[in-house]
Simulated assay, not measured.
Amino acid sequence: MSNYYTPKGGLPPQTQLLTDRAKFTDCYAVIPKGVFSDIVTSNLPHWDKTRAWIIARPLSGFAETFAQYVMEVAPGGGSEKPEPDQAAEGVLFVTDGAGELVLDSDTHQLSAGSYVYLAAGAAWQLQNNSDAPLRFHWIRKAYEAVGGIAPPKSFVTHETNHDPIPMPDTDGAWATSRFVDPNDVAHDMHVNIVTFQPGGSIPFAETHVMEHGLYVLQGKAVYRLNEDWVEVEAGDFMWLRAFCPQACYAGGPEPFRYLLYKDVNRHMKLTLGA
């Protein structure tokens, strides 16, 4: 069974030192797990008994293409009107607890490892009918439609249904669990799970057009972000601007795994801010 780190909130003691690994730069940000306290949560309209840690949002000098929430729904909570923007697509990834999803009139039982793609305009509701909190990631993006290409449809699956695909020439030290076909240009974002075995690495400074959001689900690593090497562990979040160089070395004793967002499969807008 895979481990998925989930924040539980709380508040640090008054005796804790203020120095931490939190960092915000022009091309990357690190939000360490210790930041996920009770005082930085948000309430959302039409969500009952629910709080959200908002860890990415479209903002000048920060994320440009997506928003990402870590959601916590208490027993009896949920929403019948979860998404306010009909142009927004989304991904839900459950890390803890259980919930009932009604998606386009079909009912699905969600558990840790459940993955849901929500097409723009999809009709959905989510309730926690259990006696324990439901916790999940919610990634939202404005869908970029393309003439002549039908938009993707909503679906529900589970991580166990998707075997990790090793990267070439890595002997399985670096692998990716893909939930959609990367060649399907109907999709304009991918949300995957990347796994490094202890000692595995990205052996070069990746520099590319895709914006990234990385939430560490398990393990630890030393990650290169632009010119800096930072230590990251389960529960940390990283944002990487397009073209920010990245590389990593995975530590032990367990695999290093993260939930990865990236924007894909679209022409570049030629007007800044369009």
Rank of each mutant, 00 (worst) to 15 (best):
159 E>M: 06
149 I>L: 13
80 E>T: 12
125 Q>P: 03
188 D>H: 13
92 L>V: 14
10 G>C: 10
117 Y>S: 02
179 F>P: 13
76 G>S: 14
64 E>I: 05
241 R>E: 05
61 G>D: 15
144 E>C: 11
91 V>G: 01
228 D>C: 11
263 D>H: 11
210 M>H: 12
22 A>D: 12
221 A>Q: 06
205 A>M: 11
53 W>H: 10
114 S>I: 02
42 S>N: 08
246 Q>G: 07
161 N>Q: 13
68 Q>S: 10
257 R>P: 00
36 F>A: 06
93 F>P: 05
42 S>D: 01
107 T>D: 06
12 P>F: 13
72 E>M: 15
60 S>I: 07
215 Y>D: 01
221 A>K: 00
146 V>Q: 03
241 R>L: 00
136 F>S: 03
103 L>P: 00
178 R>M: 09
169 D>R: 15
24 F>C: 06
61 G>R: 15
144 E>Y: 11
199 G>H: 05
148 G>R: 12
98 A>C: 12
144 E>F: 14
267 H>E: 14
177 S>T: 15
129 N>A: 10
158 H>T: 04
201 S>T: 15
38 D>M: 07
180 V>C: 02
250 A>E: 03
212 H>N: 07
255 P>M: 12
196 F>E: 04
88 A>L: 08
93 F>L: 15
160 T>Q: 10
274 A>D: 06
82 P>K: 02
16 Q>G: 01
95 T>D: 06
112 A>H: 02
154 S>R: 05
46 H>P: 08
238 M>S: 07
70 V>L: 15
17 L>P: 11
95 T>C: 00
199 G>S: 11
224 R>S: 01
197 Q>F: 07
6 T>C: 14
29 A>Q: 12
185 V>K: 12
50 T>C: 11
158 H>I: 08
209 V>K: 07
105 S>G: 05
100 E>Y: 04
104 D>F: 03
44 L>P: 02
33 K>T: 05
37 S>A: 15
2 S>W: 11
76 G>I: 01
33 K>Q: 08
105 S>M: 12
201 S>A: 14
207 T>G: 04
29 A>D: 11
4 Y>Q: 08
268 M>P: 03
17 L>F: 10
134 L>P: 04
111 S>K: 12
133 P>R: 13
31 I>K: 11
267 H>T: 15
169 D>M: 09
240 L>G: 03
87 A>E: 12
103 L>Y: 05
200 G>R: 07
7 P>V: 09
141 K>F: 05
44 L>V: 02
79 S>F: 06
26 D>C: 13
124 W>G: 02
97 G>H: 04
176 T>F: 01
234 A>M: 03
40 V>E: 08
171 D>S: 13
182 P>E: 01
193 I>G: 00
230 V>C: 06
241 R>W: 05
88 A>K: 09
193 I>W: 05
195 T>G: 08
76 G>K: 07
72 E>P: 02
162 H>Q: 14
27 C>G: 09
179 F>R: 10
66 F>P: 02
156 V>A: 05
83 E>M: 07
107 T>R: 13
177 S>M: 09
73 V>P: 09
75 P>Q: 08
78 G>K: 04
123 A>R: 11
271 T>R: 14
72 E>I: 13
59 L>A: 13
271 T>H: 09
42 S>F: 09
130 S>Y: 08
162 H>L: 06
229 W>K: 11
96 D>A: 14
182 P>S: 03
55 I>G: 04
32 P>E: 04
37 S>I: 15
